[in-house]
Design a protein around this nucleic acid. Sequence first.
DNA 1: TATTGTTATACTCTATAACTATA
DNA 2: TATAGTTATAGAGTATAACAATA
Lengths: 134, 134
Amino acid sequence: MSSHVGYLTIRLAGLAKESFERAIEPLGLRPALYDVLAVVAELGPESQRDLAAVLGIDPARVVALVDELESSGLAERRVDPDDRRRRVVAPTRRGRDVHGRALRAARLVEADLLDALTPAERTALRDLLRRTVA
Amino acid sequence: MSSHVGYLTIRLAGLAKESFERAIEPLGLRPALYDVLAVVAELGPESQRDLAAVLGIDPARVVALVDELESSGLAERRVDPDDRRRRVVAPTRRGRDVHGRALRAARLVEADLLDALTPAERTALRDLLRRTVA
DNA sequence: TATTGTTATACTCTATAACTATA
DNA sequence: TATAGTTATAGAGTATAACAATA
């Protein structure tokens, strides 16, 4: 319909998100769960408050997401001995494994998404997007 | 966090959508309402079924959206005399006016979004996105 | 008194199926 | 019987405020 950058970006984001959802669904993940798992797997254990800050979401949402990760055995809460109000969220061994699989799935989705572009064009697109969101 | 195209695209789409929502909110529109109004204003009157097909949404959703456009005086339903099951949706004069204002607001949002890029880079980004979603 | 996490509530958006009226 | 539109219902996702435990 329109070929404005805003419109095209929203459409491409929709495609990317759908493909990503399909790719991580067999791992028992949704994008929101992936985000939490990725932070604790890549940045190391974090308190729920810090997780909320990093992810830019409300601390109340983190509760339910960590509940899910915990009940599917991908992460666990540990009470911080220095401040017993804090629950530090850490990935389990299986959580790390699933995170690795999800990362690889994401790379495949990305390659498929950019199928029509040459390597040089992919780099150009990435750089333009990076400068625009910065 | 990540600089994958998929992630950057989802972030940029979020920014674009938020800015667009803020820009059209004073006009009494949300993105879904804007989409319907844009189709009837740009492509001419359409049946609700055709609207659903063009927009890629369920006909049941169109009902509520057209209800809203109608009650805010931006569009109106007319029974098709040739097939009295069909309701043709047409913009009112005020609907056309609001659509024009929303379009201009969208152009400002777009310019603001691409502030960091040169004109040549904006064109390049648009072309790369267009080829990727195609 | 302030902060961390939790619970409860409500609100938006959307998907689905059942229903009506016309054909 | 098939189609256009409508209504009702339920589900996911999220925002908000009140609450309990700890500092």
